[in-house]
Simulated scan of single mutants.
Amino acid sequence: MNKTLSTDDVPPQFLKAAYLVGHVPLKALASDARISYTLYIPPTHYKTGPNAKKLPLLVWIHGTRRKLDALDGGDLVSFAESTPCAILAPLFPAGLDGPNDLDSYKSMRSKTLRSDLALLSMLDEIAPRWPGLETERFFMLGFSGGGQFVHRFLYLHPERLLGISVGAPGRATMLDLTLNWPNGIADLESLFGLAVDRKLIRRVAIQLAVGSADNEVHGGNEFWEWLQKLKGKDPKLSEGEIWLP
Rank of each mutant, 00 (worst) to 15 (best):
E81S: 04
D72V: 00
L133Y: 12
Y105A: 14
F92D: 02
G98K: 10
S104D: 04
P131T: 09
L76P: 10
T135E: 05
I61P: 00
A89P: 03
K106S: 08
F79W: 13
S104C: 14
S82Y: 01
K47S: 09
G146M: 04
G145C: 11
I61C: 11
L119K: 04
T83L: 10
L76W: 13
A80V: 10
S115D: 05
K111I: 03
G98T: 12
L133I: 12
T44E: 15
L113Y: 05
P99T: 11
E125D: 14
G142P: 11
K47H: 15
G147M: 04
P131L: 11
L102K: 12
P93G: 10
M122R: 03
G73I: 12
I126S: 06
G147A: 06
P90C: 12
I61W: 02
M108S: 07
G146S: 03
M108D: 00
L123A: 07
R114T: 05
K47L: 11
L68M: 13
S144F: 04
P56H: 12
H62A: 12
W130Y: 13
L58T: 05
G63E: 08
L117S: 12
F138T: 07
P128K: 07
S110E: 03
L113C: 10
D75E: 12
L133N: 06
T64F: 01
G145Y: 04
L133K: 10
D72P: 00
P99Q: 08
G142E: 05
G146L: 05
T64H: 05
L113D: 06
S110C: 05
E134G: 07
G63N: 05
T44S: 13
P128T: 07
R65F: 01
L71Y: 02
Y37G: 04
S144C: 05
T112Y: 14
R66G: 00
N51W: 00
M122S: 03
K106G: 00
P50Y: 03
F139M: 10
M108Y: 13
G49A: 09
T44Q: 14
P131S: 08
Y37T: 08
T112P: 00
G98R: 08
M108Q: 13
R114E: 08
G146E: 06
L141C: 01
P50E: 07
W60K: 08
R129D: 01
V59Q: 02
S115P: 13
P99C: 06
L58F: 01
S121K: 12
I61M: 15
Y37P: 02
K106R: 14
L71T: 12
D101N: 15
F79D: 03
T48F: 02
G145W: 04
E81N: 15
W60I: 01
P56R: 06
R65I: 04
L119R: 06
A89W: 00
A70K: 07
L133R: 10
T135H: 08
L88N: 11
S78D: 14
P84K: 09
D116L: 01
F79T: 11
A89N: 08
T112K: 13
G132L: 11
W130L: 08
K47A: 14
T64S: 08
T48L: 02
D116Y: 11
N51V: 03
G142S: 10
A52N: 08
K54D: 02
D124R: 15
